[in-house]
């Protein structure tokens, strides 16, 4: 599978998906007006990855901001990862948030309560 590597912009995050190493990373800002357009290729990639995943998929989500239009798309990403986890593969989700950013921690906890995969909440120090 071809990896995905997308550089970040002021409105969209940096994305690195690599099936060989099992790394799935989304970092930066996700505030596009049309988030489905941005996330559809990522969700499609994960759908393909589901058939031959790495033995361990390590997911790093480190968002500074995301809008509500992205929040449903991010849930779609997690649902694909949940399917990989449910089919017996190891998946770890690391949810990063900046020191004192309780809103971002809470956003991670909201996802954690919907998605049945172990989440690790990691506070980034200044």
């Amino acid at each position: 599978m071809e990896p995905i590597s997308i550089a970040g912009t002021p409105k969209t995050p940096t994305v690195q998906f690599d099936s060989g190493s099992g790394k799935v990373e989304i970092k930066g800002r996700s505030i596009p007006e049309n988030s489905i357009e941005f996330y559809k290729p990522l969700v499609d990639w994960l759908e393909n990855y589901l058939s031959t995943p790495a033995s361990l998929t390590e997911v790093n989500i480190q968002l500074e901001y995301f809008n509500t239009s992205s929040s449903k798309c991010i849930l779609d990403v997690f649902k694909k990862l949940e399917a990989i986890y449910k089919s017996g593969n190891e998946v770890v989700i690391n949810w990063y948030y900046e020191e004192d950013d309780e809103d971002m921690l809470e956003a991670g906890e909201d996802y954690q309560s919907i998605i049945k995969i172990p989440f690790k909440m990691i506070e980034l120090e200044d």
Partner: peptide, 26 residues
């Protein structure tokens, strides 16, 4: 409010642009 947010996020259909009533709740 948290419950309403999660309910809309997880259970409701979104428009093709990805919006769907979460903005004001957020």
């Amino acid at each position: 409010l948290k419950d309403l947010y999660k309910d809309i996020l997880n259970n409701q259909e979104f428009s093709e642009k990805g919006g769907g009533g979460l903005g004001m709740v957020d």
